[in-house]
Design a protein around this nucleic acid. Structure first.
Length: 598
DNA sequence: GCCGTTTTCGGCCCGACTGTTTTCAGTCG
């Protein structure tokens, strides 16, 4: 069973408990355990194999015991018994917006819906036949809401509704530019997962501080849209022509800090923060901090002041995920060691090492569309001191080893020639590193003959085929590849995931981390919009072990080199500092590292 | 059922919104 499936199982137990009227804290405990398991970076089964179920946050003795039985025998008597006490038909309904355990149970009971398989269809028919409005606790409105919810669910099943971060970022940029034209918008910020730079984002949420909310809202809705979803005194929601939703929320400048904090989340960060505050006699809400004794509310213009009032250092939005940041912020504020990390910033990046040009070396995969000179110009514009060209290797199927060696030699000559003429033209120096992105073949060999390595400074290795290998084979394949040549310095887009399209392959990460550490190989954080790979949670794990990263754009056109900020955001979400990033080194240190031979 | 710079017992985040209600239950983020 995957982590997601087990999390789902625990959520269903919580729902069943809710229907059964169980103690509500027990219900919350199961929900929290589910959430925790869903966010693990390793398979739950691996924890079990190592006898470490108890180390998982929110999993205590009891749940660990049930999970142990589940892994040992394939099922848990306790789970089965709880689930058996409620009608199975309620579970699919929990996925429908607007329906929770209690309503689902009432519906299933009143309408005698027994089949979990057809319950969605059956409920839809009942709604159309107006058999819901007469059920106690329901009415005309909830009947039509349920119908809408079912429709939304059916659509949602077909297409995932979230967008990749760069798309959300682009939309936010346009909307913010529009809002800022209003003289009444004093401050503007993004909110929610977008402000925390999560790899995928649902809606674009925006906050505006203003003394004149009506004027700002009137101005906001003049942004091109197909529909105004909602419009009230505190904000408005627009459906854009591209089908995306933008929510804007307004607040007084004097209380803007609390509003930003509250709506930035994450949910888990806010829960933990409120627990922490409560212990100090303070209650938090979106308007400020309430003193529990006097009942008085203090307001804050900025988030910095808000966190400070709690005795904490400012926590960057990217790491507000309840991964120890509150404790670290407390230590920072107290001047103790183990405080918040000094997160890497875009301006710390000194070069980009994964760029494809239009030079045709008859590769196994796609060429880029910009020339070397165009890439160098762009690197210059970005203020980089070095740039690495990592085209795909010449295809193995269409060439003999000697032909590949020949192509590689010609490529090096050509690049050096082009580079020196570019250098003569541009005064500021951008160093060129001639690299290659080499396929890791299905047997773990690299798709480049040994002699061809003479014509590159270093290589990135990545998987571009046979994605469905099992975890153990894939791990062996990659560990072999990483150790097969001393010029292998970077492991490219390590999970192979494509956001919304393809799950990454499974790897034994501890093994991979060990190899990287031992050989001083950097894990790539690939900034390409639908990759953002290595994922932030794995960056967090690897960084703890002192493994190095290389943040690259994988640009196939010079313009795509602008995507660097997304890779940086992934690194930040993984608590990485500039010392963890090889392309934050100045050229001399970097040159020593990239040419290091173990 | 979980968990510990208040604690191994006794607590457990907060508020908005909605629809169905005469004061609240359920759902959501």
């Amino acid at each position: 069973m995957t982590n997601r499936e087990i999390a789902q199982l625990l959520r269903n137990i919580a729902a069943a408990y809710e229907v059964l009227g169980e103690n509500r804290f027990r219900i919350i405990a199961y929900d929290r355990a589910a959430e925790s398991i869903e966010h693990l970076t390793s398979e739950l089964k691996d924890y079990w194999d190592d006898g470490k179920l108890g180390e998982i946050p929110a999993v205590g003795e009891t749940i660990a015991g049930h999970l142990d039985e589940l892994f040992k025998t394939g099922s848990s008597k306790h789970f089965a018994s709880v689930m058996g006490k409620v009608p199975q038909a309620i579970f699919p309904l929990l996925m429908v917006p607007g329906l929770g355990p209690k309503k689902a149970y009432k519906l299933v009971k009143a309408l005698k819906l027994t089949s979990a398989k057809s319950v969605i269809e059956d409920l839809g028919k009942a709604a159309k036949a107006h058999r819901i409005a007469s059920i106690e606790g329901f009415g005309e409105k909830s009947e039509s809401d349920i119908l809408t919810g079912l429709e939304a669910f059916k659509k949602g099943q077909i297409k995932e509704n979230r967008m990749v971060l760069p798309e959300a970022d682009a939309i936010a940029h346009e909307v913010l530019t529009h809002i800022r034209k209003s003289p009444d918008a004093k401050h503007t910020d993004t909110l929610g997962s977008l402000r925390r730079w999560v790899s995928t984002v649902g809606d674009v949420d925006i906050a505006v501080a203003t003394a004149k909310p009506k004027e700002v809202i009137d101005h906001f809705i003049t942004f091109a849209h197909q529909k105004i979803i909602e419009r009230g005194p505190t904000g408005a929601s627009l459906l854009l022509h591209n089908g995306r939703q933008v929510d804007m929320r307004v607040g007084k400048p004097s209380a803007y800090g609390a509003m930003l904090q509250y709506f930035t989340g994450s949910k888990n960060h806010n829960i933990r923060l409120r627990e922490y505050a409560l212990a100090k006699g303070m209650s938090l809400n979106e308007y400020g901090i309430k003193d529990m004794r006097t009942g008085k509310l203090r307001t804050f213009e900025t988030e910095e002041a808000f966190y400070k009032a709690l005795g904490l250092a400012f926590i960057p939005p990217e790491i507000r995920e309840d991964k120890g940041e509150i404790e670290a912020a407390l230590r920072s504020a107290q001047g103790k060691p183990g405080g918040l990390p000094n997160l890497v910033e875009l301006k710390d990046i000194r070069g980009d090492l994964h760029i494809h040009t239009s030079y045709n070396l008859e590769p196994s995969h796609d060429l880029g569309s910009s020339t070397l000179a165009e890439v160098l110009d762009k690197a210059h514009e970005l203020g980089y001191s070095y740039v690495g060209i990592s085209d795909h290797n010449p295809s193995k199927g269409n060439h003999s080893d000697n032909q590949i060696i020949d192509i590689m030699k010609r490529r090096k000559d050509k690049y050096e020639q082009q580079y020196s003429s570019w250098n003569a033209r541009v005064k500021k120096r951008v160093h060129l590193v001639i690299m290659l992105e080499v396929d890791i073949l299905s047997d773990g060999k690299l798709a480049l003959p040994d002699e061809a390595y003479n014509y590159v400074d270093a290589v990135i290795v990545s998987v571009h085929s046979s994605f469905s290998q099992n975890k153990s084979d894939m791990t062996k394949r990659i560990t072999n590849a990483l150790q097969s040549h001393p010029k292998v310095r970077i492991f490219g887009h390590p999970t192979g995931r494509l956001l919304q399209k393809r799950e990454g392959y499974e790897l034994e990460w501890d093994t991979i981390f060990d190899i990287c550490q031992h050989n001083d190989i950097a894990l790539e954080i690939n900034s390409f919009p639908d990759r953002l790979d290595l994922p932030d949670m794995l960056v967090f794990e690897a960084a703890k072990k002192g493994i190095k990263f290389c943040i690259d754009t994988d640009a196939h056109a010079a313009g795509q080199m602008n995507s660097m900020k997304f890779g940086v955001s992934v690194a930040r979400r993984g608590w990485a500092t500039k010392r963890d990033i090889v392309n934050c080194m100045d050229y001399n240190d970097f040159a020593t590292w990239i040419t290091k031979r173990r």
